[in-house]
Design a protein around this nucleic acid. Structure first.
Lengths: 177, 177
DNA sequence: AGCTTTGTTGACTGGTCAGTCAAGAAAGTT
DNA sequence: AACTTTCTTGACTGACCAGTCAACAAAGCT
């Protein structure tokens, strides 16, 4: 997973993958079929280990703003030091979604899942009186998914931390009652 | 440019490039040096032909909301039918920014340029009384750059048109007086 | 026209690619 | 222990990769 994450689909050779996994070439082929299926498995693993935790973190606090900020800031800080930069799902969307429909459907599903989780977290926050009644939460959820993915692109692209945090905080500030 | 845009850096072979350009292999090497420099030239061409027009479109109407919506909607509609999906700059950020600092600096500069243009356009709109005084325009500009890039990722990832437009419209709605 | 410079062509290089194969080791079964 | 099945290994394949080379054509200049 890490190898595909760091180097992309085309950039990761089978030799890179056997070296990184410590698993022989033929074993990989017997276990996964071919490179594309191995890539999908890596993507699924990323989703499970890095994306779903983010989604679940949204229910960790009554206030979406606190929950989301706490979940996203470490990513922007790069403080998860030994993980590659940027988001594997974003890279997959950019590099492979056009050519591989299995990648596309996983990416679409992941983004939709995040949007739903954001909406529900926002609704819970509203129920707790933490969010203004005037805000269109469905719209806010769509906006916030796009903002998060955009932040991940800009993060990979070298945009400074302050700008990214400002973007996030502005999205969060919308909710203020 | 179109070949790199469609297939990415690693995905576009020199044979693809000579075929697409109609220019011989050696001519490309004499003119550009190597594949990396050719990629940079393609990126510069994209910036000039597709990104700067978007930036300039922001001064095409006193109301940022109208200007931005008119500029972005065609991209989301894919009505620019013969252009590849997604944004070349986003793909470059995801695939190459980590490995090629020249790509990174171009991407960073492009995003920063869009942010500045958004800020100035929003300020002009405010001067015309079209934007609420309470909105933090700097924050809004940062948010909107991230949102646009996120939309481009999600567009490539197969997210439906309606969700993307909703995200954009929510960012625009923030400005309402 | 004769000569220099510039551009073009297609064959070629060493290296790497994804994927396969066959031989051997390990583990499970009776 | 004998045998079958599963897993692992490293050598191998044809294809393709970025980049080079030398022969050739076109154009510019005197």
């Amino acid at each position: 997973m890490r190898t595909f994450w760091e180097r992309g689909y085309e950039g990761a050779s089978l030799s890179d993958l056997t070296e990184a996994t410590g698993v022989g070439r033929q074993s990989l082929y017997l276990a996964f079929g071919d490179k594309q299926k191995l890539y999908l498995a890596a993507l699924d693993r990323y989703r499970e280990h890095f994306f779903l935790p983010l989604v679940e973190a949204l229910s960790g606090n009554v206030d979406v703003r606190v929950a989301l900020r706490e979940a996203i800031l470490p990513l922007v800080d790069g403080s998860c030091a030994d993980d590659p930069r940027g988001c594997f799902l974003v890279a997959a969307a950019a590099e492979r979604a056009g050519e591989d429909s299995a990648v596309r459907s996983r990416v679409t599903a992941a983004f939709a899942g995040l949007e739903t989780a954001l909406l529900e977290a926002a609704q819970r926050s509203r129920a707790a009186g933490l969010v203004a009644d005037t805000v269109d939460l469905t719209g806010w959820a769509a906006l916030t998914v796009a903002t998060i993915q955009g932040m991940r692109v800009m993060e990979a692209g070298g945009t400074d931390r302050a700008t990214l945090i400002r973007a996030l905080d502005t999205a969060l500030a919308m909710l203020h009652p």
